[in-house]
């Protein structure tokens, strides 16, 4: 994707009442609505992926409770709670049916949402998604990693790792990351980033689904994408080669193009 001078201004963060507080979200673009469910490290992000989705649809990009600019909403404690949280959000925004793009942790939430209410999801994208319980190929324990280890697990290209580690983080950045990972722990410490019941419910998903796997994912073994693709009735598995778990963080143009194409495809 080419980022040009004509690129639209970053839409302002909006706030919206939810549960015991407020969530933050951005919304921009026109066309069919797209709900983007971010990864653990992807809250409050605005980059090539978001721009690509804005160019082709009406993008709604919220921060999950406890992440980014959203309040903690401690009453939302499980991924099951998050499903109801997002159903409330869709109802509140008057969105009967959306495309859902979920990345990593957000992919788990997206899959659960599509299992719960298949009729609300027109097209589904699961990118390097966690959520399945595969004891023989477990997701790496990112909670045990120090920052350099985590960066090496996220990016395949060593230059990206070096760049990410080149500047010491500010105290505010450390605290924001600690809060985001704390929210991830809230939802995914135990069972570890999975719902043991999810796999046998995936048959309920009716949306055409693109399952994206990172070719060199050191956090989520390939078996997870393969299992999603095998159990979701109308699913296509696509592997982004030479790419780490961060997907659009590592290969923004290729990943964005694949997602935009899937959402726009005639089916």
């Amino acid at each position: 994707m080419t980022v040009t001078d004509a690129e639209p201004a970053t839409p302002a963060v909006q706030r919206r009442k939810a549960g015991s507080g407020e969530i933050a979200y951005r919304r921009a673009g026109q066309g069919h609505p797209v709900l983007l469910l971010h990864s653990a490290g992807g809250a409050n992000e605005w980059g090539p992926l978001q721009l690509g989705l804005v160019a082709t649809g009406d993008l709604v990009a919220p921060d999950h409770p406890g992440f980014g600019l959203s309040d903690d909403l401690p009453e939302i404690h499980t991924v099951d709670d998050l499903v109801y949280h997002y159903l409330d959000l869709l109802d509140g925004l008057g969105l009967a049916q959306v495309d859902v793009v979920g990345l990593s942790f957000g992919g788990w939430v997206a899959a659960e949402l599509a299992v719960h209410s298949p009729e609300r999801v027109r097209r589904l994208v699961l990118g390097a998604a966690v959520g399945l319980r595969i004891p023989e190929a477990p997701v790496a324990d990112l909670f045990l990693m120090n920052p350099p280890q985590l960066m090496r697990a996220l990016f395949h290209d060593e230059a990206l790792v070096t760049a990410a580690l080149s500047a010491a983080p500010t105290t505010d950045q450390i605290l924001a990351t600690y809060r985001d990972l704390g929210a991830l722990a809230r939802f995914g410490w135990h069972p570890f980033l999975n719902d043991p019941k999810l796999e046998r419910r995936l048959h309920r998903i009716s949306a055409p689904t693109l399952v994206l796997a990172a070719g060199e994912d050191r956090l989520v073994p390939r078996a997870h994408a393969e299992r999603y693709a095998a159990r979701i009735p109308d699913a296509e598995l696509r592997v982004v080669e030479d790419c780490g778990h961060a997907l659009h963080g590592e290969r923004p143009a290729e990943v964005t193009a694949a997602i935009v194409e899937h959402l726009g495809a005639e089916k």
Partner: peptide, 22 residues
Amino acid sequence: QGLEIVFPPGYMSPAAMKGLLK
């Protein structure tokens, strides 16, 4: 023991973590 295993995510409030960093 690394910070990662002593203060895993969520173990401390962000305020307490701020005090620790300070």
